[in-house]
Simulated scan of single mutants.
Amino acid sequence: MVSSNINNVISDMYRVLLSSDAPKGSEWELACSMILGKLGMRPPWPSGPDAAAEWQLAQDVGVLRSAELMVISPSAHAAVMAAAATLEPGDLSTLSRDRDVVSPTGLLVLPEPVVCVNRTGSQSDTLAYGWQFTTQHQLLPTAQYAGVRISTFMDRDGPVQPDDWRAAVAQARASGHPLPRLVPDGMYGMRGDHAITTASETTTELLTEKHKELQAALTQASAWRAEPVADIGEWAGGRVEDSGDDFACRYMFAFWRLVAQGVTTTTSTASTPAGPRTTGHPHDPDVRVVRLAQQVPAQRGAEAGQEKHVRAYHHRWPVRMHKVRQWYPSAQEHRLIWRGPYIKGPAEAPLMLGEKVYVADRG
């Protein structure tokens, strides 16, 4: 599965470069550099997708073995989803991994799968994001950048269960090698060297425009394997249309920045009692729980004589936020922050990630 995904991604980029002004004969090297080099693989490039898949799986295993483990609460997850929706591709170039990213290696487990639909109509249900610091090798042999590699992990038992997936899970279980709950899926590379220091609107808009042009070309190159979007995924917040193939990066950017901004708070608790270490197996790390630092309930007691009716909210929901380019005089730079977010509604009520909020009026 991983090998097929990598082959499709590199082949799409190769077809786009064949129709570009790239130097003739260099298209395959450039495609590998733009895909594999961005992930942190060093040239020379592998001879085929199987070798690249083996490399990717080795990186995923490295994350699962050594990452700092975090789980995000439903409220904080809703805030990150809302923040990610405000981002454009150009905003991601303002990431500074040394300033923004909470740890060099991490695994963030979500409270529920997020269903994403890619440019060809395929769906996946992401349950966790892993990341590692890496060095990107892009375009030219000397073009090296500090980067962050993001791994996505599907939910084996999640809402997206097509027939071929159920058959694969059953076959693996019958063979005595059942699939793990977190199944490696995609991999993405982000520059983390604060490539845009001023974060001006003009610069980020230009990068966003170029990104969308490339994604439109890639969508056209992959049209031959497009399929109708089947209604096989359910999620309280709806499906994420990821035609730009950047939702994982937007989600993680929003998560890191909100943590750095102080919107969230983190508590640490031991996942298992301390005990003797087994050779070849890492000790279970502490599990960090990421929650919103502040929640503002919408249901408040009315002062006598001021209101005739009290609204009883039966759900919680994230208040929409907006991004701001805040000037930091000490660093002489703009940084992207958000105004908000917070969760409205009674603490014991279920969380709604969609647009509807149910209200009951009572006298």
Rank of each mutant, 00 (worst) to 15 (best):
T204F: 03
G40W: 06
G262I: 02
Y145E: 08
A221M: 06
I196F: 02
T219G: 09
A22P: 08
F247V: 09
M1E: 12
Y188K: 00
A51S: 07
S175W: 11
S75C: 07
R239G: 09
Y358A: 05
M13S: 07
A172S: 10
A83H: 14
V160K: 05
A53R: 02
I6N: 01
G158T: 15
E355D: 12
L92Y: 02
G90A: 00
V289C: 09
P44T: 01
D21P: 01
P297D: 15
I337Y: 10
A143C: 05
W131R: 03
V289I: 14
A248C: 05
A83L: 11
L179K: 08
P297T: 15
A52M: 01
V296Q: 15
G340K: 14
T279S: 14
S47N: 15
G90W: 01
V183C: 01
L127W: 00
P228Y: 01
K323H: 05
T279V: 15
G238P: 08
S73K: 11
G233N: 12
A82T: 10
D157T: 14
V183K: 04
S3H: 13
R156C: 10
P49S: 11
M187K: 00
Y251V: 02
G354N: 10
N7H: 13
S271T: 05
Y342V: 02
R362S: 02
T134E: 08
L179V: 05
P350K: 01
P89F: 05
D284Q: 14
P141G: 08
V357A: 03
E205I: 06
Y145F: 10
M41Y: 04
K38D: 02
V263E: 07
N7K: 13
G158L: 09
P111T: 01
H137A: 08
T204W: 03
A199E: 11
W224Y: 06
R335K: 08
A174Q: 12
A31Q: 03
P43T: 01
M70W: 02
V16R: 09
D100W: 15
K24E: 13
W235R: 08
E213N: 13
T142P: 10
T134Q: 03
M1S: 13
G237M: 03
A51N: 07
G48W: 02
D157Y: 10
L107V: 04
R335M: 07
P180G: 08
C249W: 00
P111F: 02
R362W: 04
A293R: 08
H281W: 03
L92P: 05
M34L: 12
M190Q: 07
Q59D: 06
A216R: 13
M70H: 15
V319H: 09
R250Q: 07
L218C: 02
A85C: 11
N8M: 01
P113I: 05
A168S: 13
Y145A: 06
C249H: 06
R15V: 05
S268P: 04
A174G: 09
D163S: 15
